[in-house]
């Protein structure tokens, strides 16, 4: 694998009041890889995500994405630069149909920030074909006209991925894509992530370690807002510090 780094954060820190949620995290993600961010509860994984996508402004540190400093960009601009995130709670538009969910992302990509309130929404139908294609790719073709809020949890996640892919991002940040899923959903979603990753970079936070071990090329372990270890799964999982952080200190 090449040493081409697509996302690099250095000294990334976030302080909430007197609490260092994230304290000086360095992370490098190789282009085209699946990189996992793991760690016990409260390790600062989600905060890291929020910082990388600029939903929170870092207290200190620098973020470079695809050769460009994005530290001071607004979150919407980060998305436009090609770094798109998902959320821990599934982020679909519950009141809209599956088709409309994907189409709203296509609308952003193909029509830009247009404010055309005088046109009929029928003009959006030109995007329906592309939307249907993406929906089919995540296995939701038979649910295309259903209200997104009615979908099962796993299908919501699939829809969310289809919506994210509609932006054709260079890199995806998935926040706990498997959280709260049953077995079949986990397998299906893992397969989907693998398919998606063929021409994209993925950084994901995930608790399900079997998923992490089978999917990811590289793993960063966070604990108490700091990087504890980094490397391939086999190395990281046997690192005594990681075992300690997850299971606790063995009694003497």
């Amino acid at each position: 694998m090449s040493d081409d780094i697509i996302l690099e954060a250095s000294g990334l820190s976030k302080r909430f009041g007197g609490f260092d949620a994230v304290g000086g995290v360095d992370i490098k993600v190789r282009r085209g890889s699946i990189h996992a961010l793991i760690g016990p509860n409260g390790a600062g994984k989600t905060t890291c995500f929020n910082l990388l996508t600029k939903f929170h402004q870092p207290t200190a540190g620098q973020i470079r994405f695809d050769g460009r400093d994005i530290t001071s960009l607004a979150p919407a601009d980060v998305a436009l630069a090609g770094l798109v995130r998902s959320f821990q709670i599934s982020a679909v538009f519950g009141e809209m149909s599956v088709l409309e969910n994907v189409r709203i992302a296509l609308q952003r990509r193909h029509r830009g920030s247009s404010f055309d309130f005088w046109r009929t929404e029928r003009t959006l139908r030109s995007l329906d074909g592309k939307a249907a294609h993406l929906i089919e790719a995540v296995g939701l073709a038979s649910h295309i006209s259903r209200r997104a809020g009615e979908l099962s949890y796993g299908r919501k996640r699939a829809l969310e991925i289809a919506t994210t892919l509609a932006l054709d991002p260079k890199m995806l940040l998935l926040d706990e894509p498997m959280a709260g899923m049953g077995h079949e959903d986990i397998d299906r979603t893992a397969e989907l992530i693998r398919t998606v990753s063929t021409d994209r970079t993925i950084l994901m936070v995930e608790h399900n370690l079997s998923v992490v071990s089978s999917l990811s090329d590289r793993i960063t372990v966070l604990s108490r807002g700091k990087v504890l270890a980094e490397g391939a799964y086999a190395d990281v999982s046997t690192d005594p510090r990681v075992v300690e952080a997850y299971i606790g200190v063995p009694h003497a």
Binding site: D77, A79, R85, F93, I104
Partner: peptide, 14 residues
């Protein structure tokens, strides 16, 4: 409509 439904998601979509 989408903003009313889920504003953070719309921000994340750019």
């Amino acid at each position: 409509k989408a903003i009313r439904d889920n504003e953070p998601r719309m921000v994340s979509l750019g």
